[in-house]
Amino acid sequence: MIAKLKTFAQHLKAELLALSYAARDPRTPWYARALALLVLAYALSPIDLIPDFIPVLGQLDDLLLVPAGLWLALRLIPPEVMVPARHEAAQHPQRLAKSAWGLALMLLIYLLFLGLARAWWRSRG
């Protein structure tokens, strides 16, 4: 079981690296590129949408959101872009660094959520 999880995690990292190469390819449609960048920003962000210290939910967002976003982004990118991107990722395996853009995105989402919650609270009374 643990060996399968390690294999899955390695595959996920390789696919995220390939996604980063595919997002830079000019043949990638703008909507696929936008989703790919959002997935990469979230995956590489030093903070999560749901903090890891919250039992169960904190780990579920990493186990569900990243693979689901990756799956969707990979479906939107044409195969003629993904094949060379996967090849490039296999030829130059590297660790993707934490992302300042990912951090900014997550902080923006938190601020948006807080603004919406405040507006809702004010509208109630």
Rank of each mutant, 00 (worst) to 15 (best):
Y31G: 01
D25K: 01
L96W: 00
H11D: 12
S123D: 10
E88V: 05
I77A: 00
D61M: 08
I50S: 09
S123Q: 15
A73W: 00
R27V: 02
G58D: 06
A90S: 11
L72M: 07
A119P: 03
H11C: 15
A89H: 02
A68S: 15
L63D: 15
S123F: 13
L72Y: 02
L116V: 11
A117S: 10
S123M: 11
L65P: 00
A43N: 04
L57T: 01
W121Y: 15
T28H: 01
D48P: 01
G115R: 12
K6P: 01
L49I: 07
S20N: 04
L63P: 05
L57S: 12
L72E: 02
A34T: 06
A97K: 11
L35K: 03
P29I: 08
Y21I: 04
R95W: 11
V83A: 14
A90G: 09
T28S: 07
P26K: 05
R33Q: 08
G69S: 12
K98L: 14
W71C: 11
A43Y: 04
A119M: 15
R124E: 11
Y42R: 06
P79N: 11
L63F: 14
D25G: 04
P79L: 14
L111D: 06
L5V: 14
G115K: 10
P78M: 07
W101M: 13
K6Q: 13
A23R: 04
S20Y: 01
I109G: 02
A85I: 06
V66W: 05
W121N: 15
F53R: 06
M106N: 09
P51L: 06
G58Y: 02
P93E: 05
M1S: 14
D25Q: 05
L17H: 08
E15P: 04
K4V: 14
L12D: 07
G125E: 14
A36E: 05
P79F: 11
W71Q: 14
Y21F: 14
W30I: 10
